[in-house]
Amino acid sequence: MSTTTSRTARPVRPVAMAASFLVASAVLATGTVLLVRYGPGNMGTGFAVGGGIVLLAMAVATWRSLRHPGASTTVERALTNTGDERDRRIAERAGAVLGLVSLPLTGVAAVLVALGVRADAVLGILVWTLLAVVVVAYAVLVRRG
């Protein structure tokens, strides 16, 4: 039975993290340019700020994981993909909760649009609700598991 790599924590891989930053930065820059030019209202600014916060969180998590590997939190290990079996199980279960909730929520959103509610407003609320669901699910699972 050779499952050692699945249970143990992975070390921080600086090259892989740098590549992830580059790809994420390119996606953020492209998305921002497209949304600023073609998107409604201030969607481009919101995309840039939200994406920037995520990139900053990834950078801080990577720095902390490299500097103090033993003191990193569950969230930091998840962001840097250096978690052990418990960290991965928490992430999987939070993803499962999100997937389970997304189906009825998307259905409700479709019904609201069909009833005449503004589609862009419904879509915005849907995204924020799903984000809140995954954050709360993750926090609860970290505390319980």
């Binding site: 050692t4 249970r7 143990t8 924590a9 033993g70 990193s72 939190t73 569950t74 290990r77 978690g83 052990d84 079996e85 418990r86 960290d87 319980r144 598991g145």
Partner: peptide, 17 residues
């Protein structure tokens, strides 16, 4: 090869390894 939090969760019975 696991985190301190994982050891703590196992000890308190919150996580079955």
């Amino acid at each position: 090869g696991v985190s301190r939090q994982t050891v703590n969760s196992i000890e308190t019975g919150r996580y079955d390894p």
